Simulated assay, not measured.
Amino acid sequence: MLVVDDNKVIRQLIRVNLELEGLEVVTASDGAECLDVVHQVRPDVVTLDVVMPRLDGLRTAARLRSDPRTRDLPLAIISACTQYEVETGLEAGVDAFLSKPFEPHQLVALVKQLLTEGRSGSGVLGGGGLGLAAGQGGIPE
């Protein structure tokens, strides 16, 4: 599991909540660092913030999708997403979205869903509630 966010407090919050569920978590502070770390640790899931220095989350997602080694890696955006960012993320191949602020149980449900079903069962999560991308499976709340 790789958590990418430029805010140290948010990275720690996500990491602690996932480690409490028994997951091994590695963090990166921006998209450029993510692209380096992802090939070293080979995570099962990557969560990305959108607004980050050097390389934002949407461009990071697009780069991960264009690389044959990471093409099928489940990707989730965890950010205060606008509709434009959701649409751009879906075009880039992002599998799921979780809007900040989020409840820890939503984060855990999202990551477990991606770990269990990979890219096939992902959805769009937003605004403290759960929504789905068209034609895709759901994530129970």
Rank of each mutant, 00 (worst) to 15 (best):
M1V: 09
M1Y: 00
D5W: 06
D6F: 12
N7I: 02
R11M: 09
I14C: 07
R15C: 05
E19N: 09
L20Q: 15
G22D: 05
E24Q: 11
V25P: 02
V26T: 13
S29D: 13
D30F: 09
G31Y: 00
A32G: 15
C34S: 08
L35A: 03
V37G: 01
H39P: 05
Q40L: 14
Q40G: 10
D44R: 08
V45P: 03
V45N: 04
T47A: 03
T47I: 02
L48D: 00
D49M: 07
D49L: 03
V50I: 14
L58C: 03
R71W: 12
L73N: 04
P74S: 03
Q83W: 14
Y84S: 15
V86M: 07
E87F: 14
G89Y: 02
E91D: 13
E91V: 15
L98F: 11
K100Y: 05
E103F: 10
P104Y: 02
Q106E: 08
V108Q: 11
A109Y: 00
Q113S: 01
Q113E: 14
L114D: 05
L115Q: 04
T116N: 14
E117R: 06
G118W: 02
S120H: 07
L130I: 09
L132D: 12
L132H: 06
A133V: 12
G135E: 10
G135C: 13
Q136E: 12
I139C: 00
P140E: 14
E141V: 06
E141Y: 11
